[in-house]
Design a protein around this nucleic acid. Structure first.
Length: 424
RNA sequence: GGAGAGAUGGCAGAGUGGUCGAAUGCGGCGGUCUUGAAAACCGUUGUACCGCGAGGUACCGGGGGUUCGAAUCCCUCUCUCUCCGCCA
């Protein structure tokens, strides 16, 4: 959510910047500014009326105490009109505020200056490519066939137990999952991230805080009986640790990591790119989250990108880093880098990580603030997060790229965690 | 699932209709004293919105109501805790 005052002070800038996200904000912005003016006027009038009311009430109290009941009753008579006015002001005020909020949540975050303009995937900027695409042997298979061949993942069994998109990992497949999770968490701890084990369901306030609600409600599994939502990413519970808090500037940045299962309904995405592990309803992911000082958040973003790059490198996968264009960047992000690894048997790039700086967009909703030493007024902090990493597509790429006639080779960095170096 | 209790400032905890944005203690910050520190003592210490400012307004879990006036009374919702039951 953008800051109301910021919009009022910089309406042209907001409209201009959002063009790069292919969003025409001109109407919303001018309506917001208009409503804001009305709101302020109303508040002024309401406050005045309330001040008057408070004053009279106090006087009545004093008069009664002094035993001047007649004067007190006379004063009472004066209050009814003011009371009516206050009621009206409050009703109008609430209505305008609701309108403003409803408009505010429609506005995407402003893109960072480095975000390229563009409509979609094809316009993303490749900022780095690394690693050679392996040449596979004859009869190389896509990962879903490998998974069956080596009895690593049973998709049909998942369908039986739950439904499509809920695979069952077994044997070395399950062990590989566990090894990747442990590897990612261990690396994150080494890099100074405090490990968190968060709840996998969140309440409405948390869903709103990170922006899943109300706009993306349909993407989450909703436990209606208790009004809880299964988390689509650990970002939600972990970032909400910092909802409604005021931190000390000297403690920034806060660095957290968390493994969690992630649940996504993926409504409407059936048909394309959903084979095997490419798109699931439940998957595992290790997330990294940072709460940063606004002046340092882009340094932090670079640090996080470098960190994720290190992980992909250690796994020996060919990868590229994209700076997402305005059209492909998410609603809430100011700047996003995507990591893609190459899936050799499918002959395509798979997104395995998305690292974003949300600047104050989430923090504004979360009321996540910090206080500078000696400064009374708290400021809004910046939030960042990234996948480090999401498992399914990493597993897909590992299986496909590392397949040999003898079996699937486990990357060296992972062997201490798997306890085996080949799947055969 | 059954029964009961409760929700107040960073924390603990008073406050049951009017000088209450809220006592007191702890914690934090500043100061006195000290070579320095501790102790002691003094002062200070919530957030948001509006206003150039003086200042004003709102907030005592959320929402609604009674009243000239609500932290305090009433209704309602949510959450937490305790005991019992069930249970990893």
């Amino acid at each position: 959510m953008l800051n109301l005052k910021f919009i009022q002070d910089n309406p042209e800038l907001v409209v201009e910047k959002l063009k790069r996200k292919n969003f025409d904000a001109s109407e919303i912005v001018s309506t917001i500014i208009d409503l804001y003016a009305q709101k302020n006027k109303l508040q002024g009038e309401a406050d005045e009326a309330k001040a008057e009311m408070n004053k009279i009430s106090k006087e009545i109290g004093l008069l009664f105490r002094e035993g001047k009941a007649e004067e007190a009753n006379a004063a009472k008579a004066r209050t009814s009109e003011i009371k009516e006015n206050i009621k009206q002001f409050d009703t109008d005020f609430a209505a305008i505020e609701e309108k403003v909020t409803n408009l505010l949540i429609l506005l995407p975050n402003l893109p960072h200056d480095s975000v390229p303009s563009g409509k979609g995937e094809q316009d993303n900027e490749v900022v780095k490519s690394h690693g050679d695409i392996p040449v596979l042997h004859e009869n190389a298979m896509p990962h879903w066939e490998l998974a069956t061949k080596y009895n690593l993942i049973d998709f049909e069994l998942g369908v039986k137990i739950t439904g499509a998109g809920f695979p069952v990992y077994r044997g070395k497949g399950a062990q590989l999952q566990r090894a990747l999770i442990n590897f990612f968490l261990a690396e994150a701890s080494k890099a100074g991230y405090e490990e968190i084990q968060p709840p996998l369901a969140v309440n409405e306030a948390s869903g709103f805080g990170t922006g899943q609600l109300p706009d993306k409600e349909g993407q989450m599994y909703h436990v209606t009986e208790d009004n809880l939502y299964l988390i689509p990413t650990a970002e939600v519970p972990v970032t909400n640790i910092y909802r409604d808090v005021i931190l000390d500037a000297k403690d920034l940045p806060y660095k957290n990591t968390a493994y969690s299962a992630c649940f996504r309904r993926e409504a409407g995405s059936y048909g394309k790119d959903v084979r095997g592990l490419n798109r699931l309803h439940q998957f595992d992911k290790v997330e990294i989250v940072q709460i940063a000082h606004p002046e340092k958040s882009y340094e932090t973003l670079d640090e996080m990108v470098t960190y994720v790059e290190g992980l992909v490198k250690k796994l020996g996968l060919p990868y590229r880093i994209l700076r997402l264009c305005g059209g492909d960047a998410s609603f809430a992000s100011a700047l996003t880098y995507d990591f893609e690894v190459y899936s050799t048997a499918q002959e395509k790039w798979l997104e395995v990580s998305s690292v974003s700086n949300f600047e104050s967009f989430q923090a504004n909703r979360l009321k996540l603030r910090f206080r500078e030493e000696g400064v009374k007024k708290p400021q809004i902090a910046h939030t960042l997060n990234g996948s480090a990493l999401a498992l399914p597509r990493i597993v897909a790429a590992l299986l496909e790229n590392n397949q040999t006639p003898e079996g699937i080779k486990i990357p060296e960095a992972l062997v201490p965690y798997t306890g085996f170096d080949i799947i055969n």
